[in-house]
Amino acid sequence: MAKVLIIAEHDGSALNPSTAKCVSCAAAIDGAEIDIAVLAASATDVAAQAAEISSVSRVLTIERPENEHAVTAVLAPQVAAMAGDYSYIFGPSTTFGRDLMPHVAALLGVNQVSDIMSVEGSHTFKRPVYAGNAIVTVEAPADSLLVATVRVASWPAAAGGNSASVEAGDASVEVPSHTRYVSLESAASDRPDLQTAAKVVAGGRALGSEEQFGLIYTLADALGGAVGASRAAVDAGYCPNELQVGQTGKIIAPDLYIAIGISGAIQHLTGIKDAGTIVAINKDEEAPIFEVADIGLVGDLFQIVPELTTALD
């Protein structure tokens, strides 16, 4: 039996889909018995959502006021205190998991496997390195606890319909006050979340201005999709940083990705390799994006995009 503890990612009320993706990865380990830990100020709502994920045995809640925001210095000692007889502790490869899990690993005196793409054996995994230009098979020591992050773009969300038991977990440990949450500035949006959307429309530097980047939003809305961007577009100030797709932004795997005015730097392509269908619209027929695109269209985006929006609306 392989006992796995997954650390839930949530915003205090909604469970992030990254958690159900971690469950899919954990379930790929032979004989996995999967628990989910929900650390929150008030865990009831999130725990109820976690209990619905298939393959989950138990949801363990750790409620304390300090857990209102996900501050690693506060959460990590509690997670380490829960390690007990687990063989695996998993978190997502989102900024939440990337911040938290190595800290947990170090508290427990072990190394961490980052970004699991596939499970090859009980302690053997594949993960991307060099911006996805190489895939390395790694083997973690079988006789010690394994802490890992799960590359969310590589795994489908586990199905719902379960009703796992929800129990109060035990993680009474002192937490430091040297790290304090102040605020979160988020571009509020009714659009689907970029990391989990089925369709994504992304714009690059060729959009030319923040105003003209609006074309991307309009097309995304016509498709019911999320909006993404290249690093160049974010750096130029056309859109907020959380829309960046690529090695240092979000790594996504939508069914449809439409890249508009994005040349396709290797760091950007890293972020979309797992997309179902890639559509590229670019005026430069030599742009590297066309080498990976399933459907390519060379032309003026300012003419094409409004036309496409009308055709799809």
Binding site: D11, V71, T94, T95, F96, D99, T179, R180, Y181, V182, S183, L184, E185, S186, A187, Q195, P240, N241, E242, K250
Partner: peptide, 8 residues
């Protein structure tokens, strides 16, 4: 962070 800009 994924949700935007967090200040600590």
């Amino acid at each position: 962070v994924d949700a935007g800009l967090e200040t600590i």
